[in-house]
Simulated scan of single mutants.
Amino acid sequence: MLTKVQIHDDNHSYQGLALAPVSVLPAYQNQGVGSALINNALQTAQQLNHAVVIVMGHATYYPRFGFEPASKYNIAAPYE
Rank of each mutant, 00 (worst) to 15 (best):
Q46G: 02
I54R: 02
Y62F: 09
I75Q: 04
V52L: 04
P63Q: 01
A76F: 01
Q47R: 14
Q46S: 06
Y62V: 01
N49K: 14
A36T: 11
Y61V: 05
M56N: 08
V53T: 13
N49V: 09
Q46F: 05
K72F: 07
A41R: 05
H50I: 09
E80A: 07
Q31V: 08
I54C: 03
Q31H: 08
Q31T: 03
A76K: 06
A59H: 13
Q46C: 08
M56F: 07
M56I: 13
M56L: 10
V55I: 08
V55K: 01
V52Y: 11
V24G: 03
M56D: 06
S23V: 12
G32Y: 05
A76V: 10
S35N: 12
V24I: 03
Y61Q: 10
A70F: 12
A36V: 07
Y62T: 02
A45K: 09
M56Q: 14
F67I: 11
S23I: 10
Y62K: 04
V53A: 13
I54S: 11
I38P: 00
A51H: 15
Y62A: 07
I75W: 13
Y61H: 09
G34D: 01
N49F: 14
T60A: 11
Y73W: 14
V55H: 05
A41D: 03
L48Y: 12
S71Q: 08
A41F: 06
A27R: 07
K72I: 05
N74T: 08
A51Y: 12
L48G: 11
P26G: 07
V33T: 07
L25G: 15
V22N: 02
L48C: 13
K72P: 00
N30M: 07
S35V: 04
A77T: 13
P21K: 05
S35T: 12
T60L: 07
H50R: 10
Y61D: 09
S71D: 04
A59W: 06
H50T: 06
A36F: 10
K72S: 04
T44F: 05
L25R: 15
A59E: 15
R64T: 10
Q47P: 14
I38W: 00
N30P: 09
Q43I: 01
A51M: 12
V22E: 08
A59S: 14
A41L: 07
V52D: 01
N39P: 03
N49S: 15
G66K: 09
V52R: 03
L25Q: 13
N40F: 01
L25V: 14
V22W: 01
A27S: 12
F65Q: 01
H58K: 05
L25D: 15
N30S: 15
Q46P: 01
N39E: 03
Q43M: 03
P63V: 00
M56T: 11
Q29G: 02
Y28F: 11
A41M: 08
G32A: 04
S71C: 03
A76S: 06
F67L: 13
A77W: 06
P63G: 00
L42N: 00
V33L: 13
